[in-house]
């Protein structure tokens, strides 16, 4: 599964970068969402994908029963998801506000409005 995921994640990066290269600012937002998902999956995949081994400790024991998935990678991804959402919310509202002011969603036009 990891090998296949490597191709999927690479594809997601490609899609994200392609969208970020567009002039429409909405497509930039879509690119950002793709990028943060891709980055999260990258970390998650590289930590090793184990099914049926949650990092939980059964009652009465001090260690997980058998091998557990990497808890650190999960914690990192969890944090990244939340921060990614914060950034996205800010970006979306900022873009909306910018559109109201300059009446353009083409980034080339936005660039020229301060002239």
């Amino acid at each position: 599964m990891e090998v296949v995921m490597a191709f999927v994640v690479g594809g997601m990066y490609a899609a994200a970068i392609y969208m970020m290269l567009r002039r429409s600012i909405v497509k930039l937002v879509i690119g950002l969402v793709l990028l943060s998902n891709a980055a999260n999956l990258l970390i998650f995949t590289l930590a090793g994908m184990k099914s049926g081994a949650p990092p939980l400790i059964p009652p009465g024991m001090s260690m997980p029963d058998g091998a557990a998935a990497d808890p650190l990678a999960q914690a990192v991804v969890l944090t990244a998801i939340v921060i990614g959402f914060g950034v996205l919310a800010f970006a979306v509202v900022l873009i909306h506000r910018a559109y109201e002011v300059v009446k353009a969603d083409d980034m080339d036009q936005m660039k020229d409005t301060d002239r």
């Binding site: 490597a6 994640v9 690479g10 594809g11 990066y13 490609a14 970068i17 290269l21 995949t45």
Partner: peptide, 12 residues
Amino acid sequence: ALVAGGMITLLM
């Protein structure tokens, strides 16, 4: 974009 994505795949 494909070059960048391919690089990520190779890295992984």
